[in-house]
Computed example of a mutant assay.
Amino acid sequence: MIPPLEALQRLREGNQRFASGDRSLDNLQMLTRRDALLAGQTPFAVIIGCSDSRVPVEIIFDQGLGDLFVIRVAGNVVAPSQIGSVEFAAEKFGTRLVVVMGHTRCGAVQATLEELQRPTESQSRNLRSIVDRIRPSVEGLLATELRNNKQELTEQAVRANVRVAANNLRHGSEILESLIDHDELLVVGAEYSLETGIVDFFDGMPDSG
């Protein structure tokens, strides 16, 4: 079992390798790891990320098979199924770090902002379910001067959405809340930059992190 801060440092180091183009993993390692993982898995971190094809979690953190328990959904929203998946990883595998990771230029967040400003009836109920989960975290921003600056509005909305999702994990499950209260689980929020390849951990970080 890897402690949360050690797991966080491992992610940071992996992301630094990725951003600098110095990835450590190769195909031979993958073949070896595949055989070793047949008996089970012990992922050291759970990542809830966006489904965007430009945000492949294992590659961004330079990790291999069995290292990360990855949950991807448009807009990195947290619904009961995501919470249940995190509970499963924490209880079954002893994973002690959860990262909710948004990214710059998120299409789901942009779609939500557009929907709030210009409602449409053409969305499917399934897409609307994603928009409705992002809506509470971003609609307050439209009441500020940010509404006049589309780029800054989107930037702030992406981070607001991450904060709300991370908070939903911290307080949406008795199992996770108990682990957090006993310092056995850390939930943090992060943003991946499509422009630089760097992940910024900005929400819920301990003072020593």
Rank of each mutant, 00 (worst) to 15 (best):
I2A: 04
P3C: 11
A7L: 06
A7I: 06
L8P: 13
N15C: 00
R17F: 02
R17D: 06
F18T: 02
A19V: 01
G21T: 01
G21Q: 14
G21H: 07
L25K: 06
N27C: 08
N27P: 02
N27D: 10
L28F: 13
A39M: 07
A39G: 03
G40R: 00
T42P: 08
T42E: 11
T42C: 04
P43Y: 09
F44W: 01
G49M: 05
R54V: 06
R54D: 10
R54C: 11
V57C: 11
V57G: 04
D62N: 09
G64V: 05
L65G: 06
L65K: 03
V70G: 12
V70S: 10
V73A: 01
A74E: 00
V77S: 13
A79P: 08
S81P: 00
G84A: 04
S85D: 00
V86P: 14
V86F: 05
V86R: 11
F88T: 05
A90I: 03
F93C: 01
F93D: 07
L97H: 08
V98R: 13
V99G: 06
V100G: 02
V100Q: 12
H103R: 06
T104N: 04
T104W: 12
R105A: 11
R105G: 00
C106F: 04
C106E: 05
A108S: 15
V109C: 07
Q110W: 03
T112Y: 02
E115Y: 15
L116F: 07
Q123P: 00
S124H: 09
L127I: 15
R128P: 01
D132N: 12
D132T: 09
I134H: 02
R135L: 07
R135I: 08
P136W: 14
S137I: 01
V138F: 09
E139H: 01
L141Y: 12
A143R: 15
E145S: 15
R147Q: 11
R147P: 04
Q151S: 09
T154K: 07
T154V: 12
Q156C: 08
V158K: 04
R159L: 02
A160F: 11
N161V: 04
V162F: 15
N168W: 12
L169D: 08
H171D: 06
E174F: 04
E174T: 13
L176D: 14
L179R: 15
L179F: 10
L179K: 15
D183E: 15
Y192A: 00
T196D: 04
T196A: 05
T196W: 01
I198V: 14
V199Y: 00
V199K: 01
F201C: 10
F201M: 10
F202Q: 02
M205W: 02
D207P: 09
G209W: 15
